Amino acid sequence: MFARLFLDHPRCVNETYTEHLGAAFGVGGRLLAASFKCFVHGLVPGLYKTAGSDAIIALYKDVAPRKFDQPTL
């Protein structure tokens, strides 16, 4: 059970647990920053006009090449 939850997927994408953790936290941090900018844009439309779409495009370019056909839980 431990290996299935913590080790199998990182191995399938040729990463250690720590490398995978860092990559996932990096994507998550970028998404949090983009989310914050989108909320600010909702309150003040003149700010961060393209931040959401810019973040989506940049993340897609970074994540798409790493795609592996892996099922989730």
Results as ranks from 00 to 15, higher is better:
L73Q: 08
H20E: 10
F36C: 13
G29S: 13
F25N: 15
V63D: 10
P71M: 07
L43S: 12
R66G: 01
M1N: 09
A51E: 03
Y48I: 04
L7K: 10
T72C: 11
N14C: 14
P71L: 07
K67H: 14
R66W: 04
G22K: 12
A24S: 13
K37L: 02
L73M: 13
D54N: 05
Y17P: 00
T50A: 05
H9G: 05
T72E: 14
L32F: 12
F6P: 02
L31S: 07
E19A: 15
F6C: 07
R4I: 03
M1F: 02
A3C: 00
C12G: 08
H9N: 12
E19G: 11
M1S: 10
V27M: 11
T50D: 15
L43G: 09
E15A: 14
L47E: 02
R4V: 11
L21K: 11
H9R: 13
A64W: 07
L47K: 13
R30E: 12
A33S: 10
I57Y: 01
C38E: 09
L31N: 08
H9P: 00
F6S: 03
F39H: 13
L31F: 04
D54M: 06
P71H: 07
V40E: 14
Y60M: 06
A58I: 03
S35R: 12
V44G: 02
A51Q: 01
D54A: 11
R66F: 04
F2L: 08
L21D: 09
R4D: 15
K61V: 01
A55R: 02
I57P: 00
V44E: 08
E15F: 08
L47G: 07
Y60D: 01
H41Q: 10
A23F: 03
F39T: 08
T16K: 08
S35K: 13
R66E: 06
L7R: 09
M1A: 08
D8M: 00
K37V: 01
C12T: 14
C38V: 15
F25K: 15
H20S: 14
V40C: 07
T50I: 04
Y48V: 01
V27A: 05
L31R: 06
L21F: 06
I57C: 00
Y17C: 01
F2P: 00
D54C: 11
P10H: 06
T16W: 04
T72G: 14
G29P: 01
Y60N: 08
G26L: 08
A51W: 03
A23K: 03
Q70P: 00
L7N: 05
K49I: 06
Y60C: 05
G42K: 11
G28M: 09
G52S: 13
D54H: 05
I56V: 15
R4N: 08
D54F: 05
P10M: 06
G29K: 05
R11G: 03
L21R: 07
K49T: 09
H20I: 00
T18S: 10
P10I: 02
D54T: 01
A58V: 06
A58F: 00
G52H: 03
